[in-house]
Design a protein around this nucleic acid. Structure first.
Lengths: 213, 213, 213, 213
DNA sequence: AATGAATGAGAGTTCATTCAT
DNA sequence: AATGAATGAACTCTCATTCAT
């Protein structure tokens, strides 16, 4: 296999992306310049362009990574929890964790990752992100199916639309809990956590099977 | 004082803001420059700064305007519809309309308008936007109270948290319906409208009183 | 004489200039805009241009006024003090007072007021300032002559060059005492006043007649 | 690290600063724009900002350079001349030369370089300028001490205050000789050089020991 | 593979001044 | 006489990206 490179390109991509991530977290994506990333990572600015086409690709790389993490989290959650409600709770926790660790990427993922077959300018990372998303969706599909079979969820649920709608609603809920934390604390007299718990519970009732006596 | 005013300043603010709005809609807020707005509105760039402190204030003006429209819409909806479900549907329609006409401003409102009493650098428009938001919230509060009294909504609803949560969830739902329209159409085999209707219905069930027989 | 104007233009010029002066003193000449002056004076920006050709003329007006004050001060000083040294001290005090009240105008006067007969773009105020300067010079000339006659000053002094040189040196001394006050206090362990007194005394010795025994 | 450097960065700083200096000399500092400097130097405007933080740093660089030159000049003067008067004359020549080559920087140095330990926003060049100034002061201190020991200067001179006062007075003298050259030529019937010679001599007498017979 | 060096193309903002009324 | 309204012309500074080596 010939001479082995001391550090395969992946290492450099990881280094750069990690530095970028740190900066994105503290200053925001917009306010982070390629210069900043170069300094933080210890590479020269030009070298950044050896490993990534442009700033957008660094973001896409991180979006993919965050989605992969989310996939792992949800996979684990579904394996470990067996009850429907327990699983739902863990999924909500997963999203919460995701937003905590990667607060900026969900919006990007939502914005950019589309099966837009006309516009084929998408980056490989974006395509892969899409696939990871599909993986997650499959697992959620199964989760709902099992929930219905267990009589925990309403039998007439349209599975795919429900998943998509819940993606939107849960992330909207988390989003508002972050942006309006001050309002929630002061006017609602709740902690953000309490608010989210209440929101998650409320939403769950929209798909939970009604309890018969 | 001048002897006559051809057009009250408000007209100019409206002209400028309208031009800005057009450009924001087609190119996005970030990508629209003051130069663009000047050209589109027919005023010189310097004149823009006669009527607005800066770009931010143009945005704040439009955010306020959009919120006011939403308030009007919701007010009308609650007046015209008497049934709880009818009102809920109209509110959803209002949000939908809002997002159609002002797709970028909700995010801004969410981002910038906060009861941040420490930082008093907020623009007057931002303060007013906050108050319009509070107006809307009051009306929604009454709506829910009446819904409970009419036995249409669960009696144990926490009103304010529910409103806040629904703001988040409904806008998240609408957001995803826009961003992922292609996916919805192709994979869920639904129109965006059908998806939204399903989402709205699902969510309603989380607060709807259970039907007794 | 017909109808009398309620306020002769001079009043307006005074009002405007006074407002400008206030702002110049607190923010500097460069940083004071015509807008600021308009607001401070209560006139509209356009009205400023009714009474002054431009910003430069406002400055020239104030420079003239400050020179006139200096003239008055020195005139009084020479009248009240009869001893040569007493007069010198009062002149120094006058310059000190001048720099305190009009810290920015001496530099301007130095810069702009020149008998530059080629360039006839000078403002009427500038011409008048020149003449006030000449008035002062005449009085100083007489002061020196009397000082020589009284055997207080060296008899071989070249009067006009001495006046000009003293203008430069005294204002340079005052200038440095202002700009380097921190340095003087910390490193020289003197107050600005003490430093100036020492400087004035030292300089006086360069023209004082040597004391015979 | 790059394999080779065509020109060390200093060369570029020198190039840029030299171009800036040329423009400052003909148009003044205020009226020279970064655009002008870019054109004159042949670099792009953006490149200017690679080598200097901002316009202020270009000025600070030139101020430092000019102070360094002055230091060199004075050092040489004190080494070559052994008599007190000869040294004084050379120092005056040095200041004259300084003002000729760098007419704008003394005012800046006076304005900006201060031991303002609270405000630590000063540029490295400004700090260094301060130190060069201190170097000069030390040499002048020694010059005066030797002058006193040689009975050429009055024994009761306060050394540091004298240095500071002379800085101010000499630069004020030179300043006025430049600004009022026309007046001096026409009204005093002297050349600028003669005027300065007279001024320098006069001032020297304020510290010169009185000649005994 | 890695980078020093360079930049095109703006961005938002400011201000003295003018002019029709 | 007085001004509301409007603006041309700058200004400093930024940043993602490229390219020769």
């Amino acid at each position: 296999m010939g001479r082995r490179k001391k550090e395969p390109p992946n290492i450099h991509r990881e280094n750069i992306a990690l530095s970028a991530h740190k900066l994105f977290m503290s200053n925001g994506i917009e306010c982070t310049t390629m210069n900043d990333i170069a300094k933080e990572s210890g590479y020269s600015k030009a070298t950044l362009y050896v490993y990534f086409q442009n700033k957008e690709e660094i973001i896409a790389f991180l979006v993919l990574k965050s989605m992969t993490k989310l996939d792992e989290y949800i996979t684990l959650a579904l394996e470990n929890q067996k009850s429907t409600k327990g699983r739902y709770d863990m999924i909500c926790q997963g999203l919460l964790e995701y937003q905590k660790q990667y607060p900026f990427y969900f919006a990007v993922a939502l914005d950019e990752i589309n099966i837009d077959f006309k516009n084929s300018n998408y980056l490989p990372e974006e395509e892969e992100t899409y696939h990871v998303g599909e993986e997650i969706n499959k697992k959620l599909q199964q989760f709902i199916q099992e929930g219905i079979l267990a009589n925990d969820l309403k039998p007439d649920i349209k599975i795919l639309p429900t998943i998509m709608a819940f993606w939107g609603m849960l992330s909207g809920l988390i989003q508002i809990s972050v942006k309006k934390e001050a309002y929630i604390t002061q006017e609602l007299k709740m902690s953000r956590q309490e608010f989210l718990k209440y929101g998650f519970e409320t939403l769950y009732q929209s798909i939970a099977a009604e309890v018969r006596e």
